[in-house]
């Protein structure tokens, strides 16, 4: 039996999925900026020569984790289409349940009872599929979180290396600042999404 409270919950879950997908844009654009920064930093480090000797491997690291983040985010984007359609299917199944309950209160008919059972079964199936997709999503975000922890570590190391780069210090320090800011923004978006996922899982339970 679906109550109007459960129907509202289904809509709220749909909004949560929408919030998660909105945050993906932030993650993707910051990861792309990081990748671009890595390329620029490599050019500066080359120009700086021996003065920025320690900075060169750092640019490779930045490039590596930003590429990985872009890849993970792209995987999430693919999953997000599935998430949206599953969340929508749950809303529609819940709505159908609600309407069938109303129909049953108008006229008790074995056919309506059968439809209620079928639709409840469908709802459970769709909810399980949504739970599974959310589980996959969670592990992707945890991967990004790990990548961002590496990014923060690299930002600290790069600042030390930048301070030894003589006249190129200023340019390379701004690279370090940029990594710090981007990693922070990505972490915030990932944390928000993990919170949404946590609430979504609680609501589906």
């Amino acid at each position: 039996m679906i109550s109007s409270h459960q129907a509202t919950m289904a809509i709220n879950n749909f909004v949560r999925v929408a919030n998660i997908i909105t945050n993906l844009d932030t993650i993707l654009s910051q990861a792309k900026n990081l990748s671009l920064t890595a390329k620029n930093a490599r050019v500066v480090a080359l120009r700086a020569g021996d003065a920025a000797f320690g900075f060169k491997p750092i640019t490779n690291f930045i490039d590596e984790f930003s590429t990985q983040t872009i890849k993970t985010t792209s995987e999430i984007s693919k999953l997000s289409n599935q998430l949206f359609s599953l969340a929508l299917a749950v809303v529609r199944c819940t709505d159908l349940q609600h309407q069938l309950n109303k129909a049953n209160s108008i006229k008790q008919h074995k056919c309506i009872v059968t439809l209620q059972q079928q639709s409840l079964c469908d709802l459970k199936q769709k909810t399980r599929a949504l739970e599974q997709a959310i589980f996959s999503l969670e592990s992707y975000f945890e991967d990004i979180q790990k990548q961002m922890r590496s990014a923060e570590y690299i930002a600290v190391t790069s600042r030390v290396e930048a301070s030894n780069a003589g006249e190129f210090s200023h340019s390379l320090e701004s690279v370090s600042d940029f990594i710090t800011n981007s990693a922070r923004k990505i972490k915030t978006a990932v944390n928000e999404n993990l919170q949404e996922i946590y609430e979504l899982r609680g609501a589906l339970r």
Binding site: Q99, K102, I106, C111
Partner: peptide
């Protein structure tokens, strides 16, 4: 949408789903 449930209940008086 608002009429779906009374319609379904009404129609089942006359026809199998």
């Amino acid at each position: 949408i608002e009429l779906f449930s009374p319609m379904l209940a009404g129609i089942l008086h006359h026809v199998q789903i």
